[in-house]
Amino acid sequence: MKLKSLIIFTAAIFSIGGFAVSTGYAQGGSSSGDRFSIGVSARVVNTIEMVTLRDMQFGPVQPGQQQISIDPLLDSESGKMIAIGIPESRIRVSFVRERVLTSSDGSETLTFTYEIAGNDRDDQSSAELLQSDNRNFGLNSRGEYYFWIGGQVNIQDAKPGKYNGDFTIEVEYI
């Protein structure tokens, strides 16, 4: 397309100019051009939003297994959440370390001990383990803070069945 435009321009010079002598080079006039786009985006949130990016993944429990353990700093099976709020603001994080899991028929319980790692970067390996008491953290420049959720549960005396539970984490502005 650009080459075609150049040829048309050259022919016009010869036709209009006739035998008149033109000095110097004609430059410019090429239709060279480039069209492109840049996206613009923003995410508006209410106050602080907690978004679950991934639930904890438990593999099948083997007979004789005594404990299920997920390291929030190392294991890819850990759960992942993100807090979204005002960029650079300070937040307080608290959570209940121990939660009771109940079997689907309601007859059995297990106690799950949570371990949480947090980071203002989306980088599990450099996250720090959080204590269950309140701590002060800062949302990053994008207004984000990441959590990886793991923990342990002793299943030595557990009866076969499906156990369900939840995890509560509280995040608030300071």
Partner: peptide, 16 residues
């Protein structure tokens, strides 16, 4: 405004 993801497009044309 309502919460959510807002977007738009910047169109750019560069020519001699």
């Amino acid at each position: 405004v309502n919460a959510g993801t807002y977007s738009g497009i910047l169109n750019i044309f560069v020519e001699y």
